[in-house]
Structure formats: C-alpha cells, structure tokens
Amino acid sequence: MNKRSAPHLGETQILKAVIDKADLEDAEQSHLSVCPTCRHRVVEAENQFLRLGEMAARYAPQPTRPLRRLPYREKRTAAPWMFGWRPALASAVGILLLIVSLTWWPGAPWRHGEEPVDTAGLERIDDTVLMAEVEALIDEALPVPYLSIAPEDEPRMTDDFMRFVAPVTENDSLTLYRFKGGWASWQRFV
C-alpha cells in the first residue's frame, strides 16, 4: 500500500510529532515523512505553541530592580557548617541530653541532701510495727469501751468481792472443775 494513501495522522499523533517524532509508530513516522498535509499540520501546531511562548515573553514586564549585591565576603569568612538548621538541631539535642543526664545522675550536687532509700530497712520497720500491733491486740483483746467497763486495775475488786458478785456454787460444773483439782477430781466427783 502506498504510504501516502494511508490515513492522515490524528490530533494526538500531530501533538506527539511536535514534541518528539520518535514517539510515533513506525507506520506513522513513515506516513509523516511522505505526507505534506500532515507535515503542514505538525508545523502549524508547533508554530502556535512557539508563538504563544513568544507572546508571553513579549507581554511580560522587564525587571526594574537589579539584584542586590551578593554577600561574597560573608560566604568566605563564615564556614557553611556554622549556620543553618543542622547546627541548631545538634545544639538542641545536646542540651536535651545534658538535661536528661543531669536529672538522672545519682551523684548530682542537688541530690546530696536526700537520704538514700533503704527498701529492706523500711520493710523491717513495717514488720516491727505490725508485730507491735499484734502483741497489743493479744494484751488488750477487748475493745476500748469494754476496758472501761471492767478495768483490771480496780483496787476494790478483790477476790472476796468477786466471790460476792459470783459466789461459788457446788453444782457449777466449771467452778467445781476449777476448784476441785482438774479432770481427775471431776472424774471422781461424777
């Protein structure tokens, strides 16, 4: 088939040819090389975009302010690492580490006033206090209100008084048991 008689390039192919002819298929490239109509369309499209760019350049104003003097001397005297965000970040991290290490350091000067915490000693103290409370409960089994009702250190509360209050009864098994000499006497009595 005659290449020239092949269908003309479409709009996309024309645009591809404007940017890069190598993007066209082999058949399209062959057609373009022989078809004056398609070649004309490519040139026309190319010119349109070129002219648009030229117009933009023409209608853009010219700068009126010259560029201010570049700081050549500053650049030479100041080492690049002295300024910028990196040194600032490094300083910040350094200060943070210093604060953290000083806060946690046991030998820090402001920590001398504090007693070292002896956990075992504290536990021993707790044990002693607990045992004292237990012994106090053994000695004073009754609650405080009852103690005032029957105080043991009342001098008038003699054995005679107690016998008066609760006389010994012969039938009282417990009293009998108590006064007659224990289990053996009880056995005899029964």
């Binding site: 709009e11 645009l15 404007v18 940017i19 890069d20 499209a45």
Partner: peptide
C-alpha cells in the same frame, strides 16, 4: 512529562 504535555496541548488547541 510527555503525556501531560500532549494532554495540555490538546486542551489548548
């Protein structure tokens, strides 16, 4: 880049 360019050119035209 080329794809974007073709699309943009097509829209302009």
């Amino acid at each position: 880049v080329k794809t974007c360019l073709y699309r943009a050119m097509g829209k302009f035209r």
